[in-house]
Design a binder for these strands. Structure first.
Lengths: 232, 232
DNA sequence: GTCATTTAAAAAATCTATGATTTTGACAAA
DNA sequence: TTTGTCAAAATCATAGATTTTTTAAATGAC
């Protein structure tokens, strides 16, 4: 007697409509489909993801606590703006915290953790980088890249630190997608990550941290140049 | 008719019902009025703060992204449980991150920042500690205590790091309130904080970090003893 | 004529109320 | 003790009502 047929025939996961909107909206912000500074109207988002105002609102409220949307009481929600100053602060903080996490991981290292790092590196090295010039979707590489860096942190012994680093990875990813940094040819992704992994497996804490920071600083430099070009 | 005369300053930020519930609920969780593990029923919370289901849900969703409530899809919201293991991880991470922040603050130190630290210490030293045995409300001391530690971090140059540290301060505060640690007579709060401040103003990075960590480890030790007593 | 202020209409956000789906807990039977 | 069914309760979602903000035009002053 239910005139309302279940809209989804797939086996009902324990996800709610709000969670689905949350995940999709999050992806669209990270990948730059929604532009920085853009207003996020409840109704428009509801139409985009086929959901009501209430689930949309819940998703937006969750994202606002992760700094992935700006919330202004009585005035709505917005995609956070970007700026070079913000990016520099972000990279600086990532260097501090991921260095610390990597250091702790190395100090506590176990066989299992080392295996995970090796495997993550292997998968990353097998994933080709798709350049924006070719209209390529590089999201698969982003996934593997992130998995590798997460493997490095995984042994640090603090879910707090891991969570914070992941929050910052989200934002760094957004900057990369928005800038569509086409400078990958100018760097050797394989070598960069191999240097980090080798120092890590050697138990050389200082070297590993140095290589990690070097990689992030290089990415920052390329993004800064990209921004300069766009400004001119 | 000219009742409209609000100064230019920012009363611009009008609060919504969801924000009010958010703030009150947050306080009640931090102060332990809502017990760890307890279920947070939408209707009950709505009655408690005189609000509808919708604002309550939005507040809960915001808090869930700060780890101040656990959210389980289709099953509701809960006050996060507490455990010694969790507390140890929290304190460990605080030591890492606040040490780093303090180090950076000292390296970048300015006259203004030093003045703020001195002032915050002065206010803290003037605020009496109200012991739970006397049924005292110690929240004023908690406010000043937090302000002092925030003053130390304020110069680190990373709003990310400051934000993360504050998120962890919230959780540490909850553990203190819940444990109602009555061990304050056994420590000299004034001296402990003075040692941190003196080393800080001297520009002695190592000493300052050491004192900061020592204070957090002592608090952890007292909380652990408290937990032991409760277990017996 | 240009600029600032006021007023009114439209749009958007927020909240309330109601109905539907899912989970939970009790109770009975094997 | 375990399993299965059913009723009660809670979450989730929709739709409509109520502020609040925004937009735009109109008025008035310089």
């Amino acid at each position: 007697m239910n005139a309302k047929s279940p809209p989804i025939d797939a086996v009902r996961d324990k996800t709610t409509s709000a969670t689905i909107v949350y995940q999709q909206l999050r992806q669209d912000i990270l990948k730059g489909y929604l532009k920085p500074g853009q207003k996020l109207q409840i109704e428009a988002i509801g139409a985009r993801y086929d959901a009501g105002a209430n689930p949309v609102r819940e998703a937006l409220n969750r994202l606002s606590s992760e700094r992935l949307v700006d919330r202004k009481d009585q005035r709505g929600f917005f995609v956070p703006p970007i700026s070079l100053a913000e990016l520099r602060e972000l990279v600086k903080t990532r260097c501090w915290m991921e260095s610390k996490a990597l250091e702790e991981s190395i100090l506590n290292r176990t066989r299992k953790w080392e295996d995970d790092v090796v495997l993550a590196f292997h998968h990353l090295s097998r994933t080709p980088i798709r350049l924006p010039e070719e209209g390529g979707d590089n999201s698969e590489w982003e996934v593997q890249h992130r998995a590798f860096h997460n493997a490095l942190l995984a042994g640090c012994g603090s879910s707090w630190l891991i969570g914070f680093c992941n929050e910052m990875m989200d934002h760094a990813e957004r900057y990369r997608y928005i800038s569509m940094v086409s400078s990958y040819p100018r760097r050797d992704s394989y070598l960069e990550h191999k240097l980090i992994m080798d120092a890590t497996l050697d138990g050389n804490v200082e070297q590993a941290k140095e290589q990690l920071v070097a990689q992030y600083m290089l990415t920052l430099k390329l993004l800064e140049e990209q921004a300069d070009k766009l400004r001119v």
